[in-house]
Design a protein around this nucleic acid. Structure first.
Lengths: 203, 203, 203, 203
DNA sequence: CATGAATGAGTATTCATTCAT
DNA sequence: AATGAATGAATACTCATTCAT
């Protein structure tokens, strides 16, 4: 059983392991990310990993948590600003920020997301979905006419999931047929039109 | 080196192996799909697999090819009909058909897609993307006003990729918050509104 | 999952592994008997062991079964003769035979018994206890006055268990204070006296 | 190198560790008794164990010594009484006492004996054998006719070893076919009869 | 004295792949 | 063409022991 880190040094070690995990996945892929390799990158013995993690899976879980927390920490403070913008601007602003975040540190996070996308356990999208839902809710509160949109639940789910996948997918493309900015613009416009039309259709 | 199957019997064996692959992934997951298990399900010796496939990866590639071909074979004949429908009806018709296809044989294909989604090599989306692009192109040819839409390339890419992911994602959900039909309807409406708005905006 | 050996060659391999197990325990002790060492001694790759045994424990179980079967195969055919002898002669005859058996092949079996004595799973004494019980029963049938002995069940259990342990214990002694023959004689005399006294005490 | 505990507190710590060892073996078995677990149970850091013991083996040795000393401390004071009894009574009295001792503290000692029986190093029977030999010697001195028994050395060795094993074996049995008291009685009677017969046979 | 963080050799087990029959 | 026995590199995980603080 993994110990709870009690000393300051131990806390740092945990961080080191998680970071080594990201580096390893980025460099070698999920499959080739072995406990030994993580330990090597972290500059630790294999055993040290098991001082803090019950098993390999737990490292991935921690990595996911770490990443999701970072995204949330990036998005949440911007919500007040984002809700005041027009839809197109808001979406673009958000997406551009996300791109920067995903590309930081040699695309560490981007590669992690790509690698774990298929893996329900390793990739738990929850916290980010929640903050995006929150953003959307706040947006609606600032734009009351949107509150009357039908199927808001369905559409927001659809929008959020699709966006995440589209973004990851595009950022992963080696030779994309068009720029990320164009993608963002397209996404924004689609949302905007949808809202406009639906509201216009309301009695 | 795996020989090219020349005889009728050999072709059948290859098919048997591919089918065993799908069954195995569906039953035990990608990780637990070993050559031995595939051979067992196929009722063959392990060695026999290597008569027809260079390595395990090649089986997955063949499975992907097989699956994609099936989707294409399902979509292509419907194109003439689909292009004559309204956007909403067309999208819904297509998506409903896809659902049936993915759920056939104990969700064999759905489980395969889900399992290989993160894997760029095992999941090569190409042929399906092409037939969908083709459908879209034909659709535009039948609805000339759409030809003037700006960013058609971007938007079709966006639409197709997002749809595929959204569909797989929703079908994988254990307790979806809304029905697949609602999802299809939402998707269709979004596309429809987008087209309407953009065309209206044209000079 | 370990395969059932289907070919002749496979059967031989299973035997080889079991024998290697005995050699390894004899040479290095139970603790140091690793799957790799067994494989090395057997002249096989590690993997081959797992073709026929689910896990390491299963090898020990098979070894125990093999050993017990050998003891039984040694004792059972002698029962007809043993039951016709006097108690002292019968016990001595049996015990001397057992010594030879245990000392065969560099004391392979003796060392195995010694090593696994404490291990309820690895050392399942059952089959030997049964054949000894059988011998005792037959003996009683040939010496009807013994049938009237009280506590026959208790005493036979006591006798058998004690004998096994005493024998193993003595054979394991580096510098025994007295010979194995003396031990056997003592054991025999004790049994004999007990029977004589108890029968004499009967009404 | 572990220091010799010089202070009172250190002595107590050593005792704590030994007791933790017994608890750990009783709870989790020999295999699962790790230094870490012992330290946890003792409420110490792992490192502290190595202040007092050179290695893990040394803990087991100390535990064995502790246990054997306890048995000796239990038996020795009773010798004067035991030697004055009849054989049957004496044996029963002794054995019943041993049972109580082994069952104390959740069968701590019984479980320890069972676990280490096969292990020559961890289970050194010496001190107990010596006190039992002493008891036997004193007994003979009080019953001078016994002094003329032939093979006294052999028989006492046989008796003592068999008894120890039989007792442990029976106490370990989940569903014993007969009670411990019956076993003790049987053992006592066997010894008694043996002595009677042998003495009667003397010239 | 006491600690717990760090270690790394060692272990059982898996599985894609080969190859003699 | 077909097989299944054999392989061994690779992997996750353990745990006695050390040592800096």
């Amino acid at each position: 059983m993994a110990r709870k880190p009690m000393q300051q040094r131990a806390k740092a070690t945990v961080e080191t392991i998680i970071e080594a995990g990201f580096i390893c996945v980025a460099r070698h892929g999920l499959q080739a990310t072995t406990t030994r390799r993580i330990a090597d990158i972290a500059g630790l013995g294999v055993g040290s990993i098991y001082e803090y993690f019950d098993n390999k899976e737990a490292i991935f879980t921690a990595m996911n948590r770490h990443f999701m927390a970072e995204v949330v920490a990036f998005v949440r403070p911007q919500i007040p600003e984002l809700v005041r913008m027009e839809i197109v601007a808001s979406v673009r602003c958000l997406i551009d920020g996300i791109e920067v975040l995903l590309r930081r540190n040699d695309e560490r996070y981007l590669k992690f997301v790509r690698a774990t996308l298929g893996n329900r356990e390793a990739f738990d999208f929850g916290p980010v979905r929640d903050v995006l839902m929150d953003l959307l809710l706040q947006y609606v509160l600032h734009h009351p006419q949107m509150a009357r949109l039908p199927d808001l639940a369905v559409m927001s789910h659809l929008l959020i999931h699709a966006s995440v996948f589209i973004v990851v997918q595009h950022l992963s493309e080696e030779n994309p047929a068009f720029s990320f900015a164009e993608l963002g613009a397209g996404l924004a416009r689609m949302v905007s039109h949808y809202v406009t039309m639906e509201i216009a259709a309301l009695p």
